[in-house]
Computed example of a mutant assay.
Amino acid sequence: MSDAVAHLIFDVESIADGDLIARVRYSDENLSASEAIAKYQAERLEQTGSTFIPHTFMVPIAVVIAKVSEDFRLLDIKSLDEPKSPGEPGFRPHVMTKHFWQGWEAYHMPQWVTFNGRTFDIPLMELAAFRFGLSVPKWFDESGYKSRRNRFSTASHLDLQELLTNFSAARFNGGLNLAAQALGKPGKMGLSGDQVQSYYDRGDLKAISDYCRCDVLDTYFVFLRCMVMTGKIDLRRETELVAIAKAWIESQQETCQACADYLSKWRLWHNPWQADEDEQLAAATMFETEVASNTSGD
């Protein structure tokens, strides 16, 4: 059983670059960074119903990555450039971007896995490399349709939303929150992407990182079910992997508030199969049920 990293499941939270917005959009108005952000958010709210600003004006402020083995076991989760103690520098966009791309190369270019990362997370991290002067030649290769940046190259980047919508042929209303909750997992944990800016403005960067970590956990469990759907594993193996991951989260909860919060919202997936319909499917999740019963009885 190899612990080599074959998949990197990640999520990014971002904040607006107010100085850039002021220069590009309001160059004649002499606005401060915060004034430019507020004005642009008001415009976006009127135009789209959301204050979310396009990724071209954003920089990463939290990047969380789950390392997953070839046999789909959760190995570890890291929040890039998260300080280990108060007073240490951390959550620096340029440092996170460097660690993101250099880490991918250090692990021999495993598959990126995201939920809606094709239209936001990956472009944001590419643009961050551009902004901060980083070279990523192995990502920006020139191999034509085999290029890692090819939209349909799922070996390099599997966007689970694209898998579930046949590359946007359908819509996935409800997003990651719906997909996770359909599997009994917590989904959104008290924060949403359009609130990240306000949390950053008041200096609560740890809360942003924790929110990002919970999204990565949700994405991992959605990834597992997608592997069942596409025949990479069966339901019994998914149940075993979910139990392994839950044990890992439990081992982290004393030192990781996000893990403790995630477990507090954990529910078992309801298996609808009856033995007379499909005995194997009906029995597939008994392991998780037994583990839950034994834990509750301790």
Rank of each mutant, 00 (worst) to 15 (best):
D201K: 05
S251Y: 05
W139F: 06
V113K: 05
I61Q: 03
A16C: 06
V196A: 11
K265I: 00
T295E: 08
E288G: 15
N166Q: 04
I208L: 00
D201C: 10
R73A: 14
T56Y: 09
V113F: 08
M227C: 11
L134H: 11
K246N: 11
S143N: 11
A245M: 05
Y220V: 04
R225M: 01
W139N: 02
Y145Q: 03
V136M: 03
L8A: 14
S198T: 03
A169S: 05
I61G: 00
R151C: 02
L224K: 03
S50Y: 01
L235G: 02
E43Q: 14
S156Y: 11
E288P: 06
M227G: 05
S79I: 05
F100T: 04
T165I: 02
E250D: 14
K67E: 09
L263K: 08
G187K: 04
P83I: 06
N30T: 04
D3S: 15
G203E: 12
E105L: 12
L183K: 09
E142M: 14
K232I: 00
D201L: 09
S135E: 04
G193R: 08
S192N: 13
N30C: 05
R171G: 07
T154C: 12
Q47T: 04
F287Q: 12
E82Q: 07
E70P: 03
N166F: 05
Y40C: 10
A106D: 05
Y145F: 06
Y200P: 09
